[in-house]
């Protein structure tokens, strides 16, 4: 699905920072911060699926939570549908959540075990009060049918369902308030592959049906390649690369993305690729490295990387951006760059 220029921007994140204070010392003062998300900007067009990928601690889930103000951001702007969400009062924000829904990795934890499925969805309908009480039962049945759960199951409790079905219930609940944007935070990560495929297909199907916009947070690049239009790669609280799906997978322009892609074990036995194995662990977000945050593990790092933080450079005219000094003057062939590992 390629985006035409006429679509409008639904979500714009500007210079978002999420710092969590670390208390310590004699009097429990804030002695430092975990810089979980450190000055990132991106936008999501209406009807598009944008994925944020990265490893644990890169800040991808924190970004999702900050957009919804589940944790209030430290700084920045989150402009949704022309309105800065960070300027809204608590009550206004609650009302706004009708338009922004989130689906979590563990659906069981987010479903009240004492409620039946229909009660769970009814509660969401009640809060936003968009369907008159008399029509609610019918609406719930419709929603469940949409996500592939039979109406005969509507009065059952969450524990009577399998993991895949629970995720469908979570999706139905998110859909019930007719949201514009759904943030899927590792929504299919806990599911077995055969069930994961069913839920991914369902998400795609719903997007077509209801013109949904997804912000898809995942660590699984296979899933991301399947579902996304555009992809944001994060590392240690920073965006390192943004590109459309095709460019990112076929012509990655950041050493971290290249390493990440090469690290995934492939089921394709014929296509044995050169693997880049990154040394060491991700540094601490409390005290991230100076300069480029990836330089401590980067096989191509040179002096400038240790001193100067790269901006997001434009790699081509199509919106492919990368935060690597090597691509400052446009895209390069990384296989020709000598590695110092």
């Amino acid at each position: 699905m390629s985006m035409t220029t006429t679509t409008k921007t639904l979500l714009e994140v500007k210079n978002l920072k999420q710092y969590f204070p670390i208390k310590g010392g004699l009097f429990g003062r804030t002695v430092n911060h975990v810089k979980a998300v450190d000055d990132i900007s991106f936008h999501v067009q209406e009807g598009e699926t944008v994925s944020i990928v990265g490893e644990s601690g890169c800040g991808k889930s924190t970004t999702g939570r900050a957009i919804l103000r589940l944790d209030n951001p430290y700084a920045g702007e989150v402009i949704f549908d022309g309105e800065n969400l960070l300027g809204l009062s608590k009550a206004e924000m609650r009302k706004k959540r009708q338009d922004l829904q989130i689906i979590f990795q563990d659906p069981y934890a987010s479903l009240n075990p004492r409620q039946t499925v229909s009660q769970i969805i009814e509660e969401a309908l009640q809060i936003q009060n968009i369907v008159p009480p008399k029509e609610r039962r019918k609406k719930i049945a419709d929603l469940l049918q949409t996500v592939g759960i039979g109406t005969h199951q509507m009065d059952r409790h969450p524990h009577e369902f399998s993991g895949g079905q629970r995720q469908r219930i979570g999706i139905a609940r998110a859909l019930s308030v007719n949201p514009k944007l759904i943030i899927c935070d590792e929504a299919v990560s806990a599911l077995d592959v055969s069930i994961q495929a069913q839920v991914l297909n369902l998400l795609k199907d719903l997007q077509r049906k209801f013109q949904l916009t997804y912000l898809f947070i995942s660590h699984d690049l296979g899933v991301v390649r399947h579902i996304s239009d555009r992809i944001i790669v994060m590392y240690l609280g920073k965006i390192v690369e943004i590109a459309d799906k095709k460019s990112l997978f076929e012509n990655p322009q950041h050493p971290y993305t290249i390493a990440l892609l090469s690290a995934i074990p492939s089921t394709n036995l014929e296509k044995k690729r050169e693997r880049i194995i990154l040394k060491g662990d991700v540094p601490s977000p409390i005290d991230p490295p100076q300069g480029c945050r990836f330089h401590t593990r980067c096989p191509f790092a040179f002096d400038r990387c240790r001193a100067e933080q790269p901006g997001l450079y434009k790699v081509d005219g199509e919106g492919h951006q990368s935060a690597c000094h090597l691509v400052e003057n446009g895209q390069i062939d990384f296989s020709k760059v000598p590695s110092n590992h």
Binding site: S162, A197, R225, H226, K246, F249, L261, I264
Partner: peptide
């Protein structure tokens, strides 16, 4: 066969939906 087809692969392009195994274990 079903298992292999339902895994979304990072090194292969897709058109349309993933092949699925219907139902559950």
């Amino acid at each position: 066969v079903g298992l292999l087809n339902s895994v979304p692969k990072h090194d292969q392009d897709y058109e349309g939906d993933l092949a699925v195994i219907p139902g559950a274990v």
